[in-house]
Computed example of a mutant assay.
Amino acid sequence: MQLYNKLSAEERRELIRAAGKERLTISFYQYHQIGNPQLFRDHLFLHWHPMDVLGRIYVAHEGINAQLSVPGDRFDEFKLFLDNISFLEGVRLNIAREQDNESFLKLKVKVRNKIVADGLNDQTFDVTNKGIHVDATKFNELIEDPNTVLVDMRNHYESEIGHFKNAWTPDVDTFRDSLDYIEEKLKDHKEDKKLVMYCTGGIRCEKASAYYKHKGFKDVYQLEGGIIEYHRQVTEQGLDNKFKGKNFVFDHRLAEKISDEVIANCHQCGTPFDLHTNCANEACHLLFIQCDSCKDKMENCCSDECKEIIQLPIEEQKKLRAGKYNSNKIFKKGRSEKLVFKK
């Protein structure tokens, strides 16, 4: 009985290309009390592996958070499987507007303490007492209201390449960092302003809205389905698009274009550009914005130092990234002092 992925990313890529099938990139989440996350995790893997589902899925006592890819011709089978799980029946599936057959190359289903790391003690408040969900039409109305404070609940590297008109984009590295920081900044407006939040697919706002209501905010709203669902609604309904730039996504695509505006710049030369990459030096793996010209010049590296390292034999490179503190460098997100034009 296979319970874990056994193929490398390259092996999977070859299989996907040989199959020649169109795949759908999908995300969904659901907060629900799961008694045995490990058992549920194994159940998902055993059914999804034969369906050729790929992706990154987190399961915890509080629910499930999934970003995945499924063959288009098996979508109905996949949807039926979800509908046969009581708490996932009819769950909203955010289907990417821009598809990429190689958005995910492995199936990873992991048990975590939380489906989103938030640092909160959920026992102190009711996580089901969430804010008001609004669709794209209502959201557009709210963000034009002078009594609204619109907050981007994502991290700095996400909002840098795209965000909504009139949004406050906190300069934070993690969702955990943002919660208390935002409350402190808005503490004088808990009763006189409408707190309106958005994120990629809705999962962060779901928890944050309940948390802020617990902290005394009287009028709390969240964008239903996040930026992904907003993009679908404005496209299909011909609504005014209030989002500028690209939506950062957590798969190999790294971004979806929501509007034609480019609001970011290359971190190395400053030219307008809005596509992230990871430094080719695996001991660094820094996430940063790099234009095509700098990519060629720097060989997909963030610095001359990293450019020199990738010329070394592979075994020498492995030695350089050995050890806890060296490997921890890979978690940096565009904060390196080597980047002259970082935000």
Rank of each mutant, 00 (worst) to 15 (best):
F217D: 03
G202S: 12
K207S: 00
G216I: 08
L223Y: 09
C205T: 14
Y212H: 03
V234E: 02
V220P: 07
L223S: 14
R232P: 05
K194I: 10
K207W: 09
K207G: 02
G202F: 02
I203K: 00
L195Y: 02
G216M: 01
C205A: 14
V196W: 03
E224C: 01
K194N: 15
R204E: 08
K218W: 06
Y211D: 02
D219Y: 07
Y230A: 11
V220Q: 03
Y198E: 12
Y212I: 13
K215M: 07
L195T: 03
D219I: 07
K213D: 12
V196P: 01
K218F: 08
A210M: 04
G225C: 10
R204W: 05
H214L: 10
G202V: 08
T200F: 10
G225S: 10
Q222A: 05
C205L: 12
T200S: 05
S209R: 02
E236N: 04
C205H: 06
L195Q: 00
E229R: 14
Y221N: 08
I228E: 11
R204H: 06
Y198S: 13
Y212K: 00
G202Q: 09
Y211M: 06
I228M: 15
R232T: 10
V234R: 03
E224P: 01
A210W: 02
G201K: 00
D219G: 05
A208D: 09
E229L: 11
R232L: 08
E229Y: 13
I227D: 13
S209Y: 05
I203Q: 01
Y221R: 02
H214Y: 15
H214I: 11
R204D: 08
Y230W: 06
H231F: 11
I228C: 09
G226P: 12
K207L: 02
